[in-house]
Design a protein around this nucleic acid. Structure first.
Lengths: 255, 255
DNA sequence: CGCTGCCTTGATCTTCTTCAAAACGTGTGG
DNA sequence: CCACACGTTTTGAAGAAGATCAAGGCAGCG
C-alpha cells in the first residue's frame, strides 16, 4: 500500500525504517490521539479519554534500553505510543525467550502480574520508543471506573493467552522449519509492510531474535532462513526479513 | 494432612480416589456452595450468588466424554463443580498438547474466545464431572452487571497467561527431564494430596498425559519417569504418580 | 481367563545443538 | 573517504538429545 520511492538497487541495504522518533516526541496533542487508538480505550468519549490521559505520564527510551526488568516490583503499566518493544523472559541458561514484539497501542507491565507482585518479563526498547506510563493502582482505579475498559482488557488478555497456547503447540509438536515459517507469518501479519522486496517485517530483527522466538539456536535459525531464501520464500539481510512468497509460506504452515 | 486408612501393602494398587460423584449430583444446595467457592464469585453477597446461580444450568459428564470440541462455536462458559477436566489443543500430527487439568471452581469455554467465535481448545472429562453452564451472552451480562467479577476473571486470565509463558520457556529452553520435573511440581501443587506413598497427584494420569503436557513422546516420558522412580524421586504405577522427594525435585527444577 | 489398554525397554535414526571459524555489513574514527 | 573493528550472519563437522519403530510385559476388567 504505502509507496516508497527507493530505487531498490542490488545493494541489500536494510529497508527497515529507522523510526524517526525523538525521545521527547509524546506531545500532548499526540497523546490523546494515541490513547484513543489504544484498543482498550477505543469507544470512550473524548472527554473520558482526556480524563484517562491526565493520569498517564510519558517516558522515552532509546534502542537497547531496558524499560522494565523481570523480577522487579510490578508498579507500572506501559502503553507503547511509538516504536517497538521486545518482551522477553529469561532462562537460567541465558537462553532467553522472545515472547512478543509490541507496537503502537499495545501494553505491557503490571497487568500480566495483576495478582502478582513482580514483572514476569523483561521489556526492552527495540527502537526509539515513547511510552505512556501509569501506576498499577491508578490503572486499577481506571478499570473500576470504566468497566467497559476492563472487559476490553480481558478480551485482549484472553487473546494473548490463546496465542501463547498456540505458540506452545508449535514448539512442542512441530519442527524448527515449521515454527520459523509460522513465526514469520505472525510477524508479517502484525508488522508487515508492502515493499518492492516483499512483505517487509518493520522491525530490526536479528537471527538471534528469530531463534529466541522459536525456541532454537541462532545457528539453526540462520540455516533455516538461508534455506528459505534459497527457495525464494523470503528476502533478507542484516537485521531484516521480507516475505517474498506469502502463499507458499502459508502452505508450509497449514499442511 | 488427610489420613486415609489403607494398609499400603506392597501391591501397587492405584491410590487415586475414583471421585464418587453421580452425574446428577449438582444438587441445588451444592450449587450455591460451589459457586461461592469459585474464585471469581467469591466476595459476592449470598443474594448476588443466588442471582448468578439462577443463570447457570448444570450438566454432567462421564470419564472420557468430550465436553466441548475445539473449533465449535464458542457459545458456553463452563465451571467445574466437581471432577477433573482435561483441556487440550490438537495438532495436525495427532500429537495433542495437554494444556491444563482443571478442577473444582475453575472455568473453561467461551472465555478464552471472548473476541473469537470458536473454542480454541477441546475439553474432555477425565473423571466423572459435574459442570455449571452459562451462555456466552448471559455471562457477558453478568460481567457487565458485576464489574468486580470481571476484574477477578481478568486476574485469573492474566495468571493463566503467565503460566503459559512459563511453560513456553520450559519447552523451548530446558530438557525433557527438567520439564517433567517441573510439570510434576505444578501438578502436585494443584492436585497434590499427602499419602503414605508420597504427595499423590489426585487424578488419573497416564504416561501419555505427561508426554502431552511436556511436549514429548509417551516413550520418553516413560523412560524419564522410570528413571525418577529408580532415583527415589517418585512412586508411580498405572495411571498415578506420587512425589516421594519433593525437595530434591525442586532442586532439579531450580538449578 | 483372555482381552484391552497402559507401561516398559531396546535399537536405530533423525533432528537439532554445540563448537569452531570464517565472511560479511555497518558505522566509526582516523 | 578509506580502513578498521565490532556485531551479525553463514557454514562445516561432530556430538547429543530425543523421536521413532518394534516388541514384550503387566494390570485390571469383563
Amino acid at each position: 500500500m504505502s509507496e516508497r520511492s527507493k530505487p531498490s538497487s542490488e545493494r541489500r541495504k536494510s529497508p527497515v525504517e529507522p523510526e524517526n522518533i525523538q525521545v521527547e516526541m509524546c506531545s500532548i496533542d499526540l497523546r490523546l490521539q494515541i490513547l484513543s487508538q489504544v484498543p482498550f480505550f477505543a469507544g470512550l468519549t473524548p472527554k473520558e479519554i482526556q480524563d484517562i490521559n491526565s493520569r498517564f505520564t510519558e517516558q522515552g527510551f532509546g534502542p537497547g534500553d531496558t524499560i522494565i526488568y523481570a523480577g522487579d516490583p510490578a508498579e507500572h503499566l506501559y502503553v507503547v505510543a511509538a516504536g517497538k518493544v521486545k518482551l522477553l523472559r529469561h532462562t537460567l541458561a541465558g537462553k532467553d525467550l522472545l515472547i512478543d514484539i509490541l507496537t503502537t497501542g499495545e501494553f505491557f507491565g503490571s497487568l500480566q502480574a495483576l495478582g502478582d507482585a513482580e514483572y514476569p518479563d523483561t521489556a526492552t526498547a527495540q527502537t526509539t520508543v515513547c511510552t505512556l506510563v501509569i501506576g498499577a493502582n491508578k490503572f486499577r482505579q481506571v478499570l473500576e471506573q470504566y468497566p467497559g475498559v476492563t472487559l476490553r482488557v480481558l478480551e485482549i488478555t484472553a487473546n494473548r493467552l490463546k496465542s501463547a497456547h498456540e505458540m506452545l503447540r508449535q514448539v512442542s509438536a512441530y519442527s524448527v522449519e515449521h515454527r520459523i515459517a509460522y513465526t514469520l507469518l505472525k510477524l508479517a501479519e502484525k508488522l508487515g509492510e508492502e515493499q518492492e522486496t516483499g512483505l517487509l517485517i518493520q522491525a530490526p530483527l536479528t537471527r538471534d531474535d528469530m531463534a529466541e522466538m522459536t525456541g532454537t539456536t541462532t545457528e539453526t535459525a540462520s540455516r533455516v532462513l538461508s534455506q528459505f531464501q534459497k527457495e525464494g520464500l523470503i528476502n533478507s539481510g542484516r537485521q531484516w526479513i521480507a516475505i517474498a512468497d506469502l502463499d507458499r509460506l502459508k502452505e508450509m504452515v497449514e499442511e
